[in-house]
Each structure stands twice: as structure tokens, then as C-alpha cells.
Design a protein around this nucleic acid. Structure first.
Lengths: 108, 108
DNA sequence: ATTAAATTCGTCTTTGTCGAATAAATGGAA
DNA sequence: TTCCATTTATTCGACAAAGACGAATTTAAT
């Protein structure tokens, strides 16, 4: 499977990065996941996934300037690549088609 | 994550079982995945996932009668439980809300 | 017996998860 | 003004869960 597919958490992280647009970095992503997905997650888990997604070519990153505040070191900002957008769309389309194929009786 | 969450493949298998309604067993599920998801998968992978989904309470199973054909041994037929339906719906709703939250600029 | 359809077993890779270590910036105290 | 405690962030190292496959086993028909 290596490289091509999106894991369950990987997909969520990708979507959340897109949601945060210009402000997607570790802590913000962690908080957004916990709020929008009702799910606890640690910051190291988030960073781990971010790194793998970048290696797969689904994310790219750049450093921000340090912020003028206590401990405000530079952040690693992420953005979804075209490839990443494609993977997300593919995954969504596939699932939508599966949902459409479910006969009424199956869920009664 | 154990028990509660749906892995990427687990979700697909669950949806495919729902698609196949009364005819969901190993081989049929494998073929349906390959056709609908454009993705190669072996029969043992399918069975492995089916078993895990059953242990999690998302699937239930029963044996069919042997079919009257060469080597036609009884099939293990699967059906999505109420719990499974709930997990699928939850997963879908969460992703839909994330998609809605993506600002136009993010994907330009 | 041989062949065919199906499921189970054992093993390995990839993803998911976390705690602890490290890095960089600020604000005070000596 | 130099150091150190504190704060915000990322990286490292280890392990658990999920994904994947080949080989073995079971059961039925020829």
C-alpha cells in the first residue's frame, strides 16, 4: 500500500489542514481535530502524521517568522498539495459512490 | 484507538457489505472492492478485516447452506449491525462537516 | 482420490499513538 | 547584560493497531 493510500487519520489531518488554510501548524491542528472530530489526540501523534503526509507528497511546509510572544518560536506551517487534493477527492468520490449503492433494506 | 474507530479499509468493507446486502461473503466482497474501488486486495486481507469488524461489533455473521456446485461449501454471510451503521454514519457526517469547512482559497 | 470453493493461520509492513527529549524564544533576577 | 526558568513548538524512540499476503486447512462435488 505504501505511499499511495490515505489512512483514516491521515485523511482527517489533510482535511483539517485545508480547513485551517494559512494557519495550519501542529497545535492548531491538534485543537481543531479535538473540536471538530470529538476525539482526543496528542501533539506528537499529529506531528508524526504530518511528517508522513509530507513524505507522501500530500502536504508541503514552510516556517513562519517567530511570533513576538512568550516562547513564540517559529511554526511549521502546512498546506495541502495538488496531489493531496486529488487523494482527498478520490477518497470522497469513492465513498459517496459506495453510499449510493446501499439498498434501502440493508439499513432497516 | 482500539475498538471504537473505523480504519480506512474497515470502513470500505463495511460499506461494501451493506452494498451486497444478502450476498456479502468473502469472495463477493473482494470482487466488489476491486471493482468499485479500483483497488487490488487478496481474499485473506478481506477475511482478516471481516473478523476484526465482527469482534468490534460492527458486523454479524451466519452460515449459508452449501451450494449445489463443485466445491460449493457453505459461505459465511455478513450483515452490518446497528452499531456498525452508527459508526458509518458518524464517520460520514464528520467528514462532510470537514469538507464544508474548507475555505475556497485552500483549494485554488 | 482429485479438484474446486471457501475460510483460517502465521507473519510481516504500514499506520496510529504516546511520552520523553530537544529547540527556540521571552522575561526576569542577579 | 548575562543566565536561567518558563513557554511554545517540533523531533525522537518505542510500541500497539490496522492492513496485507501466502500458505494451510476445511468441505463439497466429481
Amino acid at each position: 500500500m505504501k505511499g499511495t493510500n490515505l489512512g483514516e487519520l491521515e485523511e482527517i489531518v489533510l482535511l483539517v489542514v485545508a480547513n485551517l488554510y494559512d494557519h495550519a501548524y501542529g497545535v492548531a491542528i491538534k485543537l481543531e481535530i479535538e473540536e471538530k472530530c470529538q476525539r482526543k489526540i496528542t501533539i506528537s501523534t499529529v506531528h508524526n502524521v504530518l511528517q508522513r503526509l509530507q513524505e507522501k507528497g500530500f502536504l508541503e511546509s514552510r516556517y513562519s517568522e517567530p511570533t513576538h510572544e512568550r516562547g513564540g518560536k517559529r511554526k511549521l506551517l502546512f498546506r495541502v498539495t495538488k496531489t493531496g487534493q486529488g487523494a482527498l477527492a478520490h477518497s470522497r468520490d469513492m465513498r459517496e459512490s459506495l453510499w449510493r449503492g446501499i439498498p434501502g433494506l440493508a439499513f432497516e
